[in-house]
Amino acid sequence: MNWQWFHRLGSPRWFFEKTDRWLPWLTAVTLILLLVGTVWGLLFAPPDYQQGNSYRIIYIHVPAAFLALAGYYVMAISGAIGIIWKMKLPYMMMAAAAPIGAALTFVSLVTGAIWGKPTWGTWWEWDARITSMLILFFLYIGIMALQNAFRNQDSADKACAILALVGTVNIPIIYKSVDWWNTLHQPATLKLTSAPTIHATMLYPLLTMVVAFYCLYALALFRYTRVEILRRERRTRWVADLALGIRPGDRPRTQKQDTEASE
């Protein structure tokens, strides 16, 4: 099998230039979806027959928790590709995914606590779902700390990738915790195998928000990765050119420019 196309994808410069064109579109789509989902969910979806309006936190809580889990796989798989192919871009993506995942995990923990107080009667309970989610938060924080603990970037990337891979075991545990053990947290409402147990009028804004959060995640990942690319490639010619506003076509310099410069 020819892997050349794969290595081309791993070029930070290629990624930087491609995403430069994608970002405005992605930003627009994300903002529209977020706006539609939020307004639909908060203003037009009906209240719940038991919880009233407090259930509406689901429109932030569930998408944030989804992406906190999915984002971990993005980070771990990037790390695995980095280890196997020794490419720079996946490692940069892995480093970029950690703070985004940490933020999303934090949001789902906080919104869950705010919802838990009026619903369950407590902010926090050490049940399997909540505790494993807290461990996920610590894993993200740990990877961010590990990334900064090494002077050598290669060592930092390798250590982070291994920690990220070890942590993948936590994701199915979080997902299945409500089925395997007695927990205070309710089982999943959106299931892969059977129909969702939420009424359609409440389900569609939720699905809109989930798609919006996927776009938001991609947007944040691209932007953080671009910052990481610039930081790590700052000594290369193409980043210097970018900073000085020299377009790729302007090089190599002509003789005329050289004589002008020396005068």
Binding site: P46, Q186, T189, T197, I198, H199, T201, M202
Partner: peptide, 18 residues
Amino acid sequence: SEVLAKHDEQYMPPEVAE
């Protein structure tokens, strides 16, 4: 000494519940 309500995974509008 403490009672917590364990919510189920059902969500529906009041009209549907009626």
